[in-house]
Design a protein around this nucleic acid. Structure first.
Lengths: 223, 223
DNA sequence: AAATTCAGTGAACGTGCGTACACTCAAATA
DNA sequence: TATTTGAGTGTACGCACGTTCACTGAATTT
């Protein structure tokens, strides 16, 4: 249990245990949800005694927040990498669909954690996730604002499209997470669905409100 | 604790207690989530002794399923009532936004329960909710298919729009549920958002794929 | 080489849990 | 009126939990 590799420094050993705790919590929360796993379960799974847990986190809640942080840093890294790809600029919709499915597949556990605890977790964890998602909407808005179709929209409108995109991302991530492992066919189906939805948003937005960039965006209440 | 009203029949008394248990579970799960409340907590809140719980439900899981059923029957009743309103046919989008916000406000607890346990609950409860939502998508598709704009779309396309509508409904319901109590301004904002999103879906769909009713719906992959 | 630090140990505690079992006593039935 | 039924009671059990505390012993510092 966490073999004390002799060549490792004490600090590195501690970090290894910390990661073991995080990994254990992530894995256990996949089957039962983070809110219902216990400090003792996590410790057992990580190969330490319950009391040793406190050397790394002061409570399960703090561990939860650490997992939120870890999950979003994973997501952010992926988005950053994707932006370097020049193809993305040309066709953000298809690229986003690809990135989404790939990212979620690679870090299924993290996405599942966020999807679940976003609504099901403790108040504190829920707020933390909400905050991260809000940040993410704003970041995505900056990226979107530079795109050909969108460049002359009002910033309010871009923000709203961004919100819809992120909402869709979350929904689709949920679907990928719940996807059985072998089914690559379903995967393509989800990607296609995500693409369609993003197109709907962009096209519907443009056509419904063609001069979004100028006066009174989005208020011609035509009922 | 569940005053034994003398005039009541034994059967009615039992039903009263059953409802008390359901209500207690619903209330308790609002703050902590259904999965993390205990049989003893529920019993205490309902005013009975833990062992009496078993006279009504064989386990907490069965109680959870009963709550799913109750929640969706509430939702279904509201949709049925709304369909009787002739205004709905003329402008389903605005009507749906109104119904959504009103319904969620009236049965906040039930919607909150569904929103949470849809992703955060136990496997069995989650599956039950998923099933109910799938049913609901199909039911909505039947309603949508009769509408002016949509009547000549292919049934696959109607099904997809229905799925997007329900997905949006769930998202917006989450927002209403998380809305602080006094804020009627936010409420109007959420309604407006819901309306916009539904318009986006309908308009985007029509414009992107105008002859959806006929051949090869939704496949002119124009990337 | 001696002193200090500190990640991990192991026993012990009080608490709330699910469930078993034998019970009561009013309503329903015969 | 006598008998049966069954919703709700009360005790008692074993178990997992979070947290406490004094501890060990290797890595680090002096």
């Amino acid at each position: 249990m966490i073999e004390p590799v002799p060549s490792e420094t004490r600090q590195a050993q501690k970090e290894r245990t910390r990661q073991a705790i995080l990994a254990a919590a992530l894995e256990l929360s996949q089957t039962q949800g983070f809110a219902q796993i216990s400090l003792r379960q996590v410790s057992r799974h990580a190969g330490i005694v319950p009391t040793a847990f406190y050397r790394h986190f002061e409570s399960m809640e703090q561990l939860g927040l650490a997992l939120v942080e870890q999950s979003f840093s994973t997501l952010r890294r992926m988005i950053r990498d994707a932006q370097r790809d020049p193809e993305v600029f040309d066709n953000i919709i298809d690229a986003a669909a690809d990135v989404l499915v790939e990212a979620v597949k690679q870090s299924k556990a993290h996405f599942a954690f966020v999807a679940r605890e976003r609504v099901g977790g403790s108040e504190v964890v829920r707020q933390a996730i909400k905050h991260e998602l809000d940040l993410f909407v704003s970041e995505l808005a900056v990226v979107l604002a530079r795109l050909p179709h969108i460049e002359n929209w009002s910033s309010d409108d871009v923000q709203m499209v961004s919100r819809l995109f992120v909402r869709n991302m979350v929904s689709n991530a949920e679907e990928v997470v719940e996807m059985p492992d072998g089914r690559t066919d379903l995967e393509e189906q989800i990607k296609e669905g995500a693409r369609r939805q993003m197109r709907l948003i962009v096209i519907g937005f443009r056509d419904w409100n063609p001069d979004a960039a100028r006066s009174s965006p989005l208020t011609p209440d035509t009922r």
